[in-house]
Amino acid sequence: MVLASWATRVARRSLVGASCCVQTSVHMRRLSVAAPAHGPASCSPKRAVSQGHYLPLFVRPAALFRASLGERTYSTALEWKPPLKVITYPDPRLRAPNRTIETFDGTLERLASDMLDAMYQCVVHDGVGLAAPQVGVNVNMLVMNEAGTPEDGDEIVMVNPEIVELENDLESFEEGCLSFPGIYADVVRPSAVTVKAQDVAGVWKTHELDGFKARIFLHEMDHLQGILFHDRMEEEAMHGIEPDLAALEEAAGGDVRVPGEMPDVFLEKMIQASHTLLNVTRELKRNAMLNDFESRNSQVDEEAARLKALIEERKREIKALEALALPSI
């Protein structure tokens, strides 16, 4: 499907990015146009931010628990088998860490080309952006083309992208994702972003993105950080897609692990076993203290009995001496 123009895209629900977005009406809801709370009204309309932290994340408890398990080591080889296929949630590679690319050669160029091909082949969902982990390659690279076809728009390849500034204005927009087929919901994101990234030759470039391009990039950038679009949904939107997420999880056998992790059910059992062991340990310590106390009491009783017997013996000796004593003169 050819996405001819912005006006056409915003008028059609089928307009979805690879991990990107659709809009059901021409007007987006502006949620905030005020200056930042921490600065004066005259401050710059943009602000420096840490990557991926422009909004609170509504991360599911399982994801939070997995995040607490710490970093893991993954293969650093840039390997894949063409043709690339988009993986779907809850494939663990969508949550796995993505390594920095340090080698810029023909292999990287082929990966970028294969990713664009995979994005364009998703004609049903009109792919306009794709991150490397979405094709099972856990490296920091994304591709995008707002037009969704190789004949139109600008193909952009970003390697090791970094967010420099984000617009304070926030916009709500219905998004879809190739890794979540058939699932759409509103996500709030900044309306513009400044990015620096390397190209396939390793040259650093700065990109000023706004509107639909900014949204495409921010969605794909989230993928590079292991953040999925439902992690940024507000509670109401999240509730609306929970049955669809559950269906994808069930279809995948319910295994949403990051490589090297145990299934959540095993983790829960381990936690229960740990609590049981802790309780048993406390009970053993308490019993040991009681036994020690009882032992000490027994020793005291024995010593008291010995002293009592000694006192009785001394009393008998005194009486014997009194009996032998001569009468007074």
Rank of each mutant, 00 (worst) to 15 (best):
C122A: 12
E208N: 10
V137L: 03
G39K: 10
M238E: 06
E294K: 13
C20N: 11
V143Q: 04
E165C: 08
H230N: 13
N291T: 00
P161C: 06
G260V: 08
D244E: 15
H125K: 11
G153F: 03
A131Y: 02
A305I: 07
S113I: 07
C43H: 06
L324S: 10
E102H: 13
E155D: 15
N140D: 06
R60Y: 06
L64H: 04
D210G: 14
Q299P: 01
A62W: 07
E322T: 05
E234Q: 12
A112P: 05
E175V: 12
L248Y: 02
E79V: 06
V16H: 06
L324W: 04
P259D: 11
E208S: 05
V49M: 10
V164D: 12
I271D: 14
G148Q: 05
M144P: 00
T103V: 15
R316P: 03
D117C: 01
R316F: 08
E236Y: 00
R72L: 13
T100G: 04
A185N: 07
L116R: 02
H239A: 15
T149M: 03
S68F: 06
A18N: 11
D231W: 01
T107G: 07
L78C: 03
S298D: 13
V22G: 15
K285V: 09
Y120M: 03
G153D: 08
I329D: 11
I241R: 01
C20E: 10
T194R: 11
A273M: 10
M1P: 14
S14A: 14
Q51G: 09
M1T: 15
E146R: 05
T73C: 13
R93F: 08
D210E: 15
R215L: 09
